[in-house]
Simulated scan of single mutants.
Amino acid sequence: MASVMGLLEERETAARVRVEELQAEADRILAELGVAEAVLERRAIARAELAEALATGDDVADPPRLEVRDPAPAAHVVKAPSPGRR
């Protein structure tokens, strides 16, 4: 006849195996979810880019140019002589 402690150990082992199986399945599903989310994001970006391009009617060969402004003139800094230096 099996001891009560032995029966509890068997049940604990079976529960541990089930947890490990479920953890492995969860890891697999999370990895697959990450790939699916990346695909969804790329497709959403592609659709938004296409909609923007069609709405503006810009020629692809002539992309919009950024306006570049001259930077502000640099301030002229005059250093006072430090004590002990001439």
Rank of each mutant, 00 (worst) to 15 (best):
S82W: 15
L54M: 11
Q23T: 15
A14L: 09
P63R: 05
R43W: 12
A15M: 07
A14M: 07
R16W: 14
G84R: 03
A48R: 15
L66W: 12
D27A: 10
R11D: 11
L40F: 04
P63V: 01
R11T: 02
P81R: 10
R85S: 06
R86E: 15
E20H: 07
A26C: 08
A48F: 03
A61N: 13
A55K: 08
R18K: 09
G6D: 13
D58H: 12
A31G: 12
T56Y: 13
M5T: 08
E21M: 00
A26I: 00
E49W: 07
E9L: 08
A15I: 02
R85D: 14
E10D: 14
R43H: 14
V19N: 10
A44D: 14
D59W: 06
G34L: 02
E37A: 09
D62H: 13
E67I: 15
E52R: 14
R18Y: 03
G84W: 02
M1K: 10
A24Y: 05
A44R: 14
G6W: 04
P63L: 02
M1T: 10
E67H: 14
R11V: 03
V4T: 08
A15W: 07
R85H: 11
R69I: 00
A51I: 02
P63Q: 11
E67K: 14
V17L: 13
L40P: 02
P64F: 04
P83Q: 06
Q23P: 01
S82C: 05
D70G: 01
R86I: 06
P73R: 13
V68M: 12
P73W: 02
L54F: 03
A53V: 03
V68K: 13
P64V: 02
D70Y: 11
E25A: 13
L66F: 08
E49M: 05
A51P: 07
R69W: 12
T13V: 03
L54S: 05
A24K: 04
R65V: 00
L33F: 04
L22C: 04
D27V: 02
M1Y: 01
A14V: 01
A61T: 13
R16S: 11
R42P: 05
V77L: 14
A74C: 00
L30T: 05
I29Q: 09
V17K: 15
V60T: 03
D59K: 12
H76M: 05
A2C: 09
R47P: 08
A72D: 14
E20S: 04
V78G: 03
A15H: 12
D62K: 13
P83V: 08
V35Y: 05
A31P: 02
L30Y: 09
P64Q: 06
A61E: 14
R28M: 09
R16P: 03
R18I: 01
I45K: 15
G57M: 04
E9P: 06
R42G: 05
P81L: 13
L7V: 04
T13D: 10
V39E: 15
Q23I: 04
R69T: 12
V19L: 07
G84T: 00
E9H: 10
R43C: 09
G6Q: 03
R28G: 02
L22K: 07
A55R: 11
A38W: 05
L8T: 08
